[in-house]
Write a protein that binds this DNA or RNA. Sequence first.
DNA 1: CTTGAAGCTATAGTTGCTAGAGACATTAGG
DNA 2: CCTAATGTCTCTAGCAACTATAGCTTCAAG
Lengths: 146, 146
Amino acid sequence: MLTIGKLGQQAGVKVPTIRYYEQIGLLPEAERSAGNQRLYSRKSLERLAFIRHARDLGFTLEAIRDLLSLSDRPDQSCAAADAIAKAQLAEVESRLARLTALKAELERMVLQCAGGRIADCRVIEVLGDHSLCATDHSHPEPELSS
Amino acid sequence: MLTIGKLGQQAGVKVPTIRYYEQIGLLPEAERSAGNQRLYSRKSLERLAFIRHARDLGFTLEAIRDLLSLSDRPDQSCAAADAIAKAQLAEVESRLARLTALKAELERMVLQCAGGRIADCRVIEVLGDHSLCATDHSHPEPELSS
DNA sequence: CTTGAAGCTATAGTTGCTAGAGACATTAGG
DNA sequence: CCTAATGTCTCTAGCAACTATAGCTTCAAG
Ligand SMILES: [Zn+2]
Ligand SMILES: [Zn+2]
Ligand SMILES: [Zn+2]
Ligand SMILES: [Zn+2]
């Protein structure tokens, strides 16, 4: 059995984060020692490592909650899990597209500035006027699904 | 003079967001009409458009606060403004690198899954074991706003 | 047996908004 | 001029996913 500190070390997750995951029901309530300290099994470590890895891949806690409950039913079809992963891939691709446009625009700004006074600064000028931009990088509207 | 609603329309910023910007001191306190409603000048619109554009380019409100106060001193050197933009570019580049790795990993996961039971699902398997990953995507992501 | 690290709970703060309640102001139509 | 609809006001709370603080208790080493 592991203390919360050891568990955190082994999974690469900070101690308060583990308690937070328990609080929101992503991890089950831990066993307690005689002195009321949390104790974790090897299985808890696996579950936490799963969460950590999914977080590293950008999944939301809600998606992870679903993935965990799916992984608890090994005989069911994995279609739902695959759908979650595909949605995450789509999300990453759309962010990537947006960031690529941002990068181009920021590079242009930085390169065009000759480095004089604020009054002549291309950075300030472009920030004040999107029509000086080459790309469209406006915030995507929240999509209203029927 | 514009009401807050007109200002919001023209700048592409929602009304509560404008009030929020005022509250945190990013916009100065607005003039008020006889009936206590906020009134804005053409200058306010420029300032708000600046903020909006900088947000669209991913700058934090803190960075925007600095950029705004720089733009109020047109005779000073623009080095500080350029530095902020360069830092933002670096930030975007690092996110881009990370997201590119995530995309590759998610694509691998999704492609490798043959689509059977959860017990054999490659998505679930890889999420449980980072050593099955081809790339290193360790550090968490500072979620870019919507 | 003492001391310092590690653990406990509970609360509040972070970023950048967004949503709601309940009251007042303004405007267009009849 | 009255009314209904919209717009605006303040205030509060909520979202994600933690992180930090305060003030305790418990544990392990020396
Ligand atoms: Zn410059
Ligand atoms: Zn632009
Ligand atoms: Zn699968
Ligand atoms: Zn991995």
